[in-house]
Simulated assay, not measured.
Amino acid sequence: MEGITGRPELGSVVVGVDGSEPARRAVFWAADEAARRGTLLHIVHGADTDTRSLYLSADSIEGIRSAGHELLRDIAAVVAERFPDLRVTTEFSRSAPVPSLQRTAGLRGTLVVGSRGLGGFAYLMLGSVGLRIVGAATTPVVVVRGEDDTVAGVVVAAVRDEHDAESVRYAACEAEIRGASLRLLHVWNVFASAGVATPMLDGAGTVVGERVRRLTDLTARIREEFPGLTVQAEAEKSLNTAGALVEASRHADLLVMGGRRSPGYIGPTLGRVTHGLVHHAHCPVQLIPRGHGSEA
């Protein structure tokens, strides 16, 4: 657990809008998050007019620009009414949504996307823009899921191993600014070791004991670093890790999970557990690229 080197800095919040209802909900979630952090909210509309200009008329492009600027004005006005003390900036980008959001977020901003865009396909639980943002993330990303604003007072941190210390610390910060408790949840997938030799399976009790020890150690360090935070830890056996985490999300305000791949990015493709969460969770899901913001 030596990766714990200090509290992460929760940066500014960047949210994309496209006129859809999920994006509108994402804006209000992002505004609430920025207000809690005491930081800026950047609202971005990536219109992709540079690409569209290759096959659309000048009048059509001007119509897209006009509609985009109007969308930004309208949503900024509603945000200002609900959060009068929040600092808000808007940006109309000629680039596509994904590079526009990534550029605005920079190295430390948190990206917020809705669960689905204007594509209109209900079976796509997360839209194509959201998938590309999550898959190529180099900065924290929140996928705003859930159908209501019920407050559970709990932030859940998914813990796989000691390398998730960084994402747990992000979860602790999120719990702290919400006045919520923190639940560390390690799910041991019974089938994950299906290809392991039989002698290894005979020592399953030792493996579970080591997992519990690591979780206990991480919990103690988080309690030490966040003395005012209520922290509980649970290790749970399941046949389906994603399913267990989705179920946990029913009773959470936010579920935080670390990236599985090498430092600096989550993607370019998503692991099965991450994919399941961003498509089916009952609360917003925050993904922290492994290695983000630390030297660990």
Rank of each mutant, 00 (worst) to 15 (best):
A80W: 00
I266N: 03
E225C: 03
V285Y: 02
D253E: 06
A165W: 05
T230Q: 02
V207Y: 13
T138I: 09
S60W: 05
T206H: 11
A242E: 08
R214P: 00
D85E: 15
R103L: 15
Y55V: 13
L218Y: 04
T216K: 10
L229F: 01
A233C: 10
W29I: 01
V155T: 14
G203E: 14
H275D: 07
T219S: 15
G135D: 11
F92L: 15
R211H: 12
L10Q: 00
V246L: 06
V208N: 05
Q102M: 15
Q102D: 08
M200S: 03
D74T: 13
L40P: 04
R213H: 14
S115N: 05
T216G: 15
L185D: 05
G46C: 05
A31C: 04
H282I: 01
P268I: 11
A47V: 02
V207L: 15
A172P: 07
G120M: 01
S128K: 12
H186M: 10
S181E: 03
R132Y: 02
V285D: 00
P99L: 15
I75M: 01
A31Q: 06
P227D: 12
A35H: 05
H279F: 00
P97Q: 13
A180D: 05
A157T: 10
D217A: 13
G16V: 12
Y55H: 12
E225V: 06
K237M: 08
A252R: 03
N240L: 07
A152W: 10
S238A: 15
I288K: 07
Y265R: 12
I177K: 10
E174H: 15
D59H: 03
E81K: 11
V44Y: 02
M1E: 15
F28R: 00
A34Y: 02
F83T: 15
H292R: 07
E174G: 03
R52Y: 09
S294Y: 06
S262H: 15
G228Y: 02
A192M: 13
L229M: 11
S95V: 10
E234P: 06
T51W: 01
H275P: 05
S294F: 03
A175S: 10
D253R: 03
V212C: 09
H282N: 10
R7M: 02
L182K: 07
H163S: 11
T138G: 11
R36D: 01
R183A: 03
R82M: 13
H186W: 07
A35K: 04
G205Y: 14
R223N: 14
C173P: 02
G119M: 01
I64N: 12
P84C: 04
R87H: 07
K237G: 12
E225R: 04
I133P: 00
V15C: 00
N240I: 04
D253N: 02
F92T: 05
R37G: 01
R178D: 06
E236F: 14
V196A: 13
A248I: 00
I4N: 12
V156I: 14
A165T: 12
H163F: 09
T138W: 06
D85Q: 13
R7G: 01
H282V: 00
E9D: 09
G127C: 07
T219P: 08
L71A: 00
S12V: 13
T198W: 14
L229P: 10
